[in-house]
């Protein structure tokens, strides 16, 4: 019998704890497939965020660390400076990366730290129950923006890919989405390119991935994919912002 699909070696057999329809699972799988296909599993050191992906060390079948909220890029820096030939990646949510960890991510990219950041933007704080994130869209209802986010009260959602692409140290910055099969394939390509950028020692790489949180958006998994396409993609355009 021909095997057409199987679990990547870079994923353990632990079942994901993510909510039904949450796209964190798809992104995990893509990262793992890229590690497998580039034969990097045994060289890889990953850093989990504080957020829904905090348990990712149970899922990725490589050396893993778990960081304090937002600090993953600093931890990655410490590792990479001492083990420059390893593949060091962080996996971070939008609260983790764009709010509490803003200092760490901006400076890691500014230094051209030769690490890869998998940035999962779901426009909300998932783990803590659906509070407003710096990436929450204007008008979006969350538990801490119950009347919808307004620019007057909370300012504007941050566009991290565009922001970091301005830094000279950033070598590869791309934004993708996982709302349909074509975009999933594009996301995989981008992750691979980011890993390759690092292995070629070109500098900082980040893939910002638009992802769903059906639970806290209050939508079914299918509606969530549609919401992402209709609302997030127009504000957060997909594409490569920096390639070197």
């Amino acid at each position: 019998m021909k095997v057409v699909a199987q679990r990547p070696e870079s994923l353990t057999d632990a079942p994901f704890h993510y909510c039904p329809g949450c796209t964190h699972g798809i992104i995990h799988r893509l990262v793992a497939e890229c590690l497998d296909e580039l034969n990097l599993r045994e060289q890889a050191i990953g850093i989990c965020p504080v957020g829904c992906a905090v348990l990712a060390y149970d899922y990725f079948n490589c050396d893993m660390l778990e960081a304090a909220h937002g600090r993953a890029p600093a931890i990655a820096t410490g590792i990479k400076r001492l083990l420059p030939d390893r593949l060091v990646f962080t996996y971070q949510g939008d609260g983790d990366l764009a709010s509490i960890g803003m200092g760490e991510i901006v400076h890691a990219s500014g230094r051209g730290e030769n690490i890869t950041v998998i940035f999962v933007n779901n426009a909300i704080y998932g783990m803590t129950g659906g509070q407003m994130a710096p990436t929450t869209l204007l008008g979006q209802v969350t538990t801490t923006s119950p009347y919808g986010r307004t620019a007057e009260q909370a300012g504007y959602p941050l566009k991290m890919a565009e922001l970091l692409a301005q830094n000279q140290g950033a070598a590869y910055i791309c934004r993708t989405a996982v709302n349909n099969p074509a975009n999933v394939m594009r996301t995989k390509k981008a992750i691979k390119k980011a890993f390759q950028t690092q292995m070629q020692a070109k500098g900082f790489s980040m893939v910002e991935i638009l992802s769903t949180c059906p639970t806290n958006w209050g939508l079914s998994p299918l509606e969530a994919l549609e919401w992402l396409e209709k609302n997030m993609i127009p504000y957060y355009p997909l594409g490569e912002f920096k390639v070197s």
């Binding site: 850093i47 660390l65 600093a74 931890i75 820096t77 410490g78 590792i79 990479k80 001492l82 760490e104």
Partner: peptide, 26 residues
Amino acid sequence: RTFLQAESELAAINMVYGAAATGNRV
């Protein structure tokens, strides 16, 4: 050896966390 001026003490101690995790004295 590695000397790095961090952007803050928060970052510095977390760099220590990562670097210590590699088994080196930091």
